[in-house]
Simulated assay, not measured.
Amino acid sequence: MDEYIVKWVPVGVVLWSLAFALVRNSFQSRSFDFCNRIVSVCHACLAVTLASLTVQEWSCPVCPLASPSTPLQKQTLAVTVAYLIYDLICCMFDDHISLDNSIHHLVSIVGLGAGLVYGICGSEMVAALWLTEISSPFLHLRELLKEIGYKDTNLNFAADLSFAVIFTTARMVGGPYLTYVTLNADNPFLIKAMAVGLQLVSAFWFYKIARMVRYKVAKRRKPIKAA
């Protein structure tokens, strides 16, 4: 088994758990979900940064296709697999368990884990990671603002809109393209299946986000508090 799974993933789970404990201790008056979302924002920023650093040729960010993963790509994937395992476990202790979020975590863990096991298609994997995490800071910012008293404000609406635009561009424009090239490259069946699965989950979330934006825009017709 790949050393990145044996060494990096278990250590990563422990480190993300310690990060949550530190945040929880620093924000004792805040909710469990609030603290977990701060850790999630940290992971999203780290994942996007690491994924960007692994790009070998910016004229073709997903190239070379179906090629052996570089050490940095493996490290990037291992960091995120560790985070996803931590977050999946952490979410089980929250008051509200989201079924679609749990499915997304499982699909991502299996897909990225398979990439580590096979040791190939690193370019496609980190590209998928970049596309899925680029909107995450705004996703969590929406909820963080609500808890600190900025619900239904101009600032919260800006966060909602930013998240919707970035998610739609990444998942529904970049996502289908990445799925297409992954399916047409000489990748293992499991990798291709996970690419399709992730895109289907993204499409489902896009539907929910579109409904959210429609509701938010309609609500803007009423007076709201200034941020």
Rank of each mutant, 00 (worst) to 15 (best):
I85W: 05
C60L: 10
P64Y: 02
L88A: 13
I89E: 07
L72Q: 05
L88K: 02
V48T: 14
D94Y: 07
I85Q: 02
P71R: 04
I103T: 14
C60S: 14
V55T: 09
I103P: 07
L72R: 04
T70V: 05
D94F: 04
V107W: 06
N101K: 11
L88E: 04
G111E: 06
L53K: 06
Y86F: 14
D94W: 01
H96W: 13
I89Y: 12
I89L: 13
I89C: 14
L106N: 03
S52V: 09
L53Y: 07
S108N: 06
C91N: 13
H96N: 12
L65R: 06
V55P: 04
C63E: 12
H96S: 10
A66V: 07
M92L: 14
E57W: 13
V110G: 03
L50E: 09
Y83P: 00
V107H: 00
H104Y: 01
H105V: 03
D87T: 06
I97G: 06
A51P: 08
Q56F: 01
S59Q: 14
V81N: 03
S102V: 12
V81T: 03
I103Y: 08
Y83K: 05
G111I: 03
L88Y: 12
L88T: 10
T49R: 06
S108G: 06
I109Y: 08
Y86T: 02
C90E: 14
K74S: 13
S67E: 12
I103R: 09
L65P: 01
I103M: 12
L112F: 15
G113P: 02
A47L: 00
G111C: 04
I97V: 15
A66L: 09
A47D: 01
L99C: 11
V110Q: 08
L77H: 02
